[in-house]
Simulated scan of single mutants.
Amino acid sequence: MTQRLYDYGALLQKVFREYLLLQSISDEQQNQILALFKKQFTVRSGVGVKMGKGLRPKSLSVDDYRLLWKALTKEPGNSLALAQLLMLFLGLTAEEVCALDSEDLLPIPNYRAYQLRITKRCVPIKKNDNDKNYIISGELPSSESYRNVPVPFLLVKLILQSAQAPQKPLFCYDKTGQRIKVNELQAEYRKLFRDFKKSFLEYHRDDGQAVRIQVSFRPENYRQSCRHFWQFLCGLQQNEIRYLGGLAQIDTAGQHYIDFNNAHKQYHMCVQMSYGLMAVAAPGTLPPKMPNGPLERKHHIDGVFNHILHTRLYIRRPCTVTITSAHGVTIKTEEGCLRWESENL
């Protein structure tokens, strides 16, 4: 119950008491009736946890993603920030991110795109109460956890700077050059959301005590939110989402017949994820540039969330047309298809 609703209930209680006095009802009966009203009108003491769990958001909004993207890209060379970006947009766990090596960033065959090979994780070994070491283990929780995750184009530009040297951890500390630790990455990730905006709900329990519970997004729900991002902003199908999340497929086609490691499938998922990330990181900042001159015609095309964009141009007289695209374009003419890709990928 909110504060306003509680005040409204207190006002109704006064009105009921005045009405009961006019009916010549004894004080004992009045107290019994008002106690019953108050019990039905207020929240029981043990309901607060259920309220907070039910009202807590399960996914981040587009505006929230934009704020987090800006916060994590202030320092392009910060390894901890890049590792958190992989957790936020690729759904990787902290153990999987810390175990990545430069050789795990592979090009998608026949395409100008990249994928991350997830085959190992960092496992902590506790020597004593004050010392923790980590080893790289090839044992993942399930067979579905072994997967290739395509990397959106905007993330590739940031990661390639950290993957120049082979046989080297993909993310390491700038000063020491050692692999980043799982516990420190998890602490930074929790700190990121701790400094993020929070929402609270205030209500009164049946004993009259005012209680304030937090109903904001929790960092441990980031993988669930990432699946919402893939579905509603990137337009991926459920079997693709389950593959990227390292989950078992729920249908026969996804289990036995669809090859998610195929280069064409990887590139398709990479393009869709790139569209979604572009809408978050750079909305409306990548319009095509039209040729200059006295007959200049400008046409602005926004980023697409779910499908590849199809645009038809009617040219009624000879002219020169210049088309630029952030992710490539296929031009169909009477003589066939012409493939063109930007050099700025």
Rank of each mutant, 00 (worst) to 15 (best):
P283S: 07
G46N: 11
Q164D: 09
R194V: 05
Q13H: 11
Y65I: 08
K53G: 06
V149Q: 01
E341I: 13
F200W: 15
C226M: 13
Q29G: 00
E188K: 11
S102T: 15
P109L: 13
L313K: 12
L338A: 04
Y65N: 04
D131G: 00
G284D: 15
D27M: 03
H307M: 10
F37V: 02
V211T: 05
S59W: 09
Q209L: 06
G48W: 15
R212E: 10
P283G: 04
N344E: 08
Q186D: 09
K70N: 14
A210C: 04
L201Q: 10
F232R: 15
E335C: 03
V97S: 09
R190F: 01
M273S: 00
T93R: 15
S225E: 01
V62N: 07
Q224F: 02
Q115G: 02
Q209M: 08
H228K: 11
K74G: 07
K332I: 12
K120R: 14
C234S: 12
I159A: 09
V43Q: 05
Q186L: 11
D101I: 07
S143A: 15
L92M: 15
G254C: 06
R316M: 11
L90F: 08
K289N: 04
T119M: 05
D206V: 09
A83H: 08
R223L: 06
C270F: 00
I301R: 06
N148H: 02
A163D: 02
I323M: 03
F37H: 01
I136M: 07
I135V: 14
A163V: 10
I108N: 15
D129V: 00
R112Q: 14
I331H: 04
G52C: 13
S137I: 10
V182F: 00
R190N: 10
M87V: 10
L116I: 14
Y243V: 02
L185H: 02
L244G: 03
Q167K: 12
L345S: 09
I125T: 14
W230L: 09
E202C: 12
L21E: 13
D302W: 11
D129W: 03
I308C: 11
K50E: 14
G77E: 08
Q272K: 15
L277G: 08
D174H: 02
L309M: 13
Y189H: 03
D129E: 06
G235C: 08
Y222S: 04
G328F: 09
C226F: 04
Q255Y: 02
Q84T: 11
L158D: 11
M269C: 11
R66H: 15
F171G: 00
K197G: 00
C234E: 11
G328L: 02
N31V: 00
M1S: 07
R242A: 10
P76S: 10
L22P: 02
K58M: 09
T311R: 05
T42E: 05
L85P: 09
L116V: 06
H300W: 15
L338C: 13
Y189E: 03
K265Y: 04
A279N: 12
N262Y: 03
V215I: 15
P291G: 03
N292M: 05
V304R: 07
R179P: 00
L233S: 07
K38N: 05
L67H: 11
R44M: 03
A326V: 06
F200V: 09
F305M: 14
H307I: 11
T119Y: 02
